[in-house]
Design a protein around this nucleic acid. Structure first.
Ligand code: MN
Ligand code: MN
Ligand code: MN
Ligand code: MN
Lengths: 223, 223
DNA sequence: TAAATATGTTAGATGGCTCTAACATTTTAA
DNA sequence: TTAAAATGTTAGAGCCATCTAACATATTTA
């Protein structure tokens, strides 16, 4: 799997992608977060971070946080774009379930071929969201952002539309499948329990369902 | 890109595949052939061959030829299956040209996902040949073999159907595109030049075309 | 058959990515 | 404000896939 000059290795791509998504979630990125996310030890991250700094993909100083440069962000967005196009393709064209596409997309995101991804993009009609509701960056890395809140923050009595899930893990998505929840569904919050943060919702044509806090937290809705 | 236990690395997969295809072409496989094909130096091949022998993927003794074991052949066929399914998929579903799919398939053949390839296989209707006419091994590694001869061996005056091309390189396939030759076309040999081995053919609805020996040699026909 | 040539192997090194063990700095808590 | 805890870095190692240089075997040719 040869890459173009100046392109990162598969390993580098995974670091860049993880740094990007951690920075989205938490602002600053720390060596330990990365080590945790990538399931490698601290010194491993430390040396890779130094290497990526030399390549000007990120800026960092010892004992300080990590920040992607513009170049680094651009690369991250390109990989994320490929990941999400791949996921949507697997669902819409190959008919796989949203709970099983992430692991395959982890592989496909490293495929180096403009043609391949241009075709997929075209075939899918230049989509803006993946099967989990996450935005797909366009060829220039631009993301269309809608305002979303977590279902766990939605007030009792309010209704909203499920826009995205904040987790691609199979076990989580299997759980949502069991509950019958899908992207685009309208839900209404009937009760919120102060004690455990659980949320009871209703949906058209379904009976009441209770979601635990950890689940509700990972569901993003639009009003 | 994690692999299952016992699965080879990307590099190992490429060695196995190359050994397989060289053994098809020439019977015995030598270290130097492999080095040549993979564009690495002899000692590199030498150490990898030793490693693969330890893994029982091939048998070899110093200064002797290399032979895949049953296990090695099975792995080779699995990779070739994925390569060819990928190529056909890229042509039939994504609408890419037969001259541009090989390089992408070189990457996709290493994707580890039964589901992914089962779906592609199903979507394509369990095909038996790739866009270049090469047979696609079934899930058990079985290949349906038709008797084919090279167009350069076809006698003057005889007709046959183009069944396959013996080369996936873009430059070669671009050349065939220019000549307007496709898999499935019926051709008749009008003249064979003894001096340079060139072959002049006719096809329905087209005027005479001359193919040089090196081209005719790489086109396989069925009577 | 002996020399020349082609082919294959061993030894030793390098770069990429990872690890453990030891040490350093920064943050938090007593 | 010092001690403890958390976090980060350096040193040194190993495995993988590759290389060059030197050496060994096999094949061809004179
Ligand atoms: Mn995903
Ligand atoms: Mn997703
Ligand atoms: Mn091919
Ligand atoms: Mn092919």
């Amino acid at each position: 799997m040869k890459k173009f000059e100046g392109m990162g290795s598969l390993t580098e791509e995974n670091y860049i992608k993880s740094i990007y998504s951690l920075s989205q979630a938490t602002g600053e990125v720390y060596v330990s977060d990365l080590a945790n996310k990538l399931r490698v030890k601290l010194p491993t991250v430390n040396s890779m971070v130094k290497k990526l700094a030399v390549k000007k993909l990120l800026s960092y100083a010892p004992y300080k946080g990590i920040k992607l440069t513009e170049k680094g962000k651009k690369e991250a967005l390109s990989i994320i774009r490929k990941h999400r196009l791949a996921e949507l393709f697997l669902v819409q064209v190959l008919g796989l379930g949203w709970e099983e596409v992430h692991d395959i997309a982890e592989q496909l995101e490293h495929v180096n071929s403009e043609r391949f991804y241009d075709r997929i993009d075209q075939m899918l009609g230049y989509p803006t969201a993946d099967p989990h509701g996450e935005p797909i960056p366009d060829v220039n890395g631009k993301i269309s952002a809608n305002k979303r809140i977590s279902l766990s923050e939605l007030q009792e009595g309010k209704s909203a539309k499920i826009a995205a899930v904040g987790n691609d893990e199979k076990t989580f998505l299997d759980h949502l499948n069991t509950k019958g929840l899908q992207i685009g569904d309208s839900v209404t919050v009937k009760r919120k329990e102060a004690f455990d943060g659980s949320v009871t919702i209703t949906m058209k044509g379904k009976k009441e369902t209770m979601l635990s806090h950890i689940v509700a937290e990972r569901i993003w809705v639009e009003l």
